[in-house]
Design a protein around this nucleic acid. Structure first.
Length: 313
RNA sequence: CGCGGGAUGGAGCAGUUUGGUAGCUCGUCGGGCUCAUAACCCGAAGGUCAAAGGUUCAAAUCCUUUUCCCGCAA
């Protein structure tokens, strides 16, 4: 496959291993990624992870504002195949139909479940026991093309979205490289998605990051790990925003208002929900660094925390 | 120059308002107790208080500048 002319379209960290895999095995003639944005406190311009990798490998980088209209530059590269992975824009049909071997997408869910922009987050938040990677032909709609191959992975009870993200990212690369030869020689499968089983994984918005302890412990726990380490689920404690990073569920018969800190020791901060307890093991208080509860207690008395109540906005 | 918080032994913090010998909770190392321990007791090491400059008899503390970290907003 060394002479296969590939154009890769992607943006975030998730797509980095996939691009690296293609660089190692194919002739990547160009990379398309989102335009540079001002990022962070100082509004410094930062290149996307994919752009950085492309530059390091002397690969041409294209960053059209709107791929829907600015697609000619991609066609001009005259690729044999286009591979996309978390690019971030809808790709117009002019591009999809152009390459000899069409456009192939690497998606982080078992389609038709979790179509959309945040499949890993949503799978964990919803308490799924398994998810996976889908390699598919792209179609004009959102993640609705025909499936070529899939691979499953189970989700651990306390696994965070960060941990799962990294595993799926590697799995995406491996499944793509395994599947690619069959696409080139035309022996691949091509399965239509079952439209009756479609679900959507909408991107995470501000209001999705609020942790409401007036919910079941398992839901709170799933939301915390489904947002950890980024963007981080939070609640307010005495006007300070506290983000949660690690947690687990523990049964209790203690009666207390949802959100109350009923116990604190070096193993964690035990917070009541509307049924059981959620044990917070790692958090970050506004203005501070991310800390384990043991580190937090080294710097403050546990009585300062006991019986305080977390609330939402 | 978008707004705000922060930087103090390896970790987390107090001390800064009102300048005057570097403190707490842990960790580490050594010893003791114990059937044993993440428990308890005794002891030790480890910090030019982010950096530079200034004020002062004297600066972690007051003034100026810089760097890095965190939250918000984009």
């Amino acid at each position: 496959m060394k002479d296969l002319k590939v154009v890769f379209m992607g943006t975030p960290d998730f797509s980095v291993p996939v691009l690296q895999g293609l660089i190692d095995t194919c002739n990547v003639i160009g990379v398309v990624t989102q335009p540079d944005k001002e990022v962070g406190r100082k509004k410094e311009i930062e290149f996307s992870p994919i752009k950085k990798l492309a530059i390091a490998n002397n690969i041409k980088v294209l960053q059209p504002e709107k791929i829907r209209t600015d697609f000619q530059c991609v066609l001009d590269l005259n690729p044999d195949i286009i591979i996309t992975c978390a690019y971030g824009q809808i790709i117009p049909v002019e591009i999809l139909e152009y390459p000899k071997y069409k456009c192939i997408n690497v998606h982080a869910s078992l389609l038709p479940k979790y179509r959309g922009g945040a499949p890993i987050h949503r799978a964990i938040i919803n308490g799924e026991k398994e998810t996976g990677i889908t390699i598919m032909y792209m179609a004009p709609g959102m993640d609705d093309g025909d499936i070529i191959s899939q691979e499953k992975i189970s989700i651990g009870e306390n696994e965070t979205v960060g941990e799962l993200h990294d595993k799926l990212s590697i799995m995406g690369k491996e499944l793509l490289l395994k599947t690619l030869p069959s696409i080139i020689d035309g022996t691949n499968e091509r399965i239509k998605q079952d439209e009756t089983k479609v679900s959507l994984a909408k991107i995470i918005k501000k209001e999705d990051e609020v942790i409401d302890f007036n919910d079941s412990a398992i839901n709170v726990h799933n939301k915390i790990r489904g947002l950890s380490p980024f963007p981080g689920g939070y609640a307010l404690l005495e006007d300070k925003r506290v983000k949660f990073y690690k947690s687990k569920v523990e049964k209790t018969n203690i009666a207390a208002l949802p959100g109350t800190i009923v116990k604190v020791d070096k193993t964690g901060m035990y917070v009541k929900t509307n049924d059981e307890l959620v044990v917070i093991e790692e958090l970050k208080i506004e203005g501070k660094k991310r800390l384990t509860i043991q580190d937090l207690l080294n710097g403050m008395n546990k009585e300062e925390l006991l019986n305080k109540i977390f609330r939402k906005e």
